[in-house]
Amino acid sequence: MWDYTDKVKEHFLHPKNIGEIENPDAVGEVGSIICGDALKLYLKIDKETGKIIDAKFQTFGCASAIASSSALTELIKGRKLDEALRISNQDIAEFLGGLPKEKMHCSVMGREALEAAVNNYRGQPAAVEEEGRVVCKCFNVTEEKIRRVAIGNHLTTADEVMDYTKAGGGCGECRAEIEAILKDIWMLKKPEKPAVPKKLTNLQKIALIQEIIESEIRPGLQADGGDVELVDIDGDKVIIALRGMCTGCLMADVTVKKIQDKLKELVSEKIIVEAQ
């Protein structure tokens, strides 16, 4: 059971400012029902003064998501836009007397909704998120978001990044990459480059690829009802066939990419994987 503060409970059980605003001046929408939480923020803004006259929200999510949304609206009401934008996710968490660390991503979602709404008001693209390279494919988290949240909240471990952004909380494949990003941010010692593998003979390469597919790739796919078969190896081109649940899966391309990344990492940078 989560250790929620009384303030979180209060804002979850009796949230403030719920619902829609008719003819809002700005709307900010973040998250999705698939990911398990989503927040839609409505603002009424005084055009003369740039003050937020009214703020309302609709949230799909857990107790801390609802409480964070309620806290956000309380924090921004009556403030000028620029002033409101200075409210950080920590301010939202602090307003609530703190959030369990695993739930900090709820406060981040609140802050993002505000940013999206202000961008919407100013005629800028709604989300910063859509730009940049996606690191966590399960929760669609970009490198930019990881960097921004990690720096803003002094996050130094992959677990902390997961608590704040969800990144790495699905299949976990991107955790190494998140750690590399963190090392880069905090100027920690760069990971040592793995020793350059000596040139493999064709036979060794085929055997190595077979072994990696058998021991590293198939068990994971099989656990999800899918499977993969090695069809052929032609130079650096590896031809595979996806089976079971993988066929026709929306994530099939991602799976092929993941297999390619693994083989690039463990066999050779030159490997190209194609699905039959």
Binding site: K9, F12, L13, G61, C62, A63, A65, F139, G169
Partner: peptide, 30 residues
């Protein structure tokens, strides 16, 4: 259209104990 943890904690207010398969209650994000 509603999230399991939110349901459980509202039920909790009435002393009703149940559980959910939602990600928010699993301790992981899955």
């Amino acid at each position: 259209y509603v999230e399991g943890e939110a349901i459980l904690l509202r039920l909790n207010e009435f002393g009703i104990c149940a559980s959910s398969g939602s990600a928010c209650t699993s301790g992981s994000l899955e």
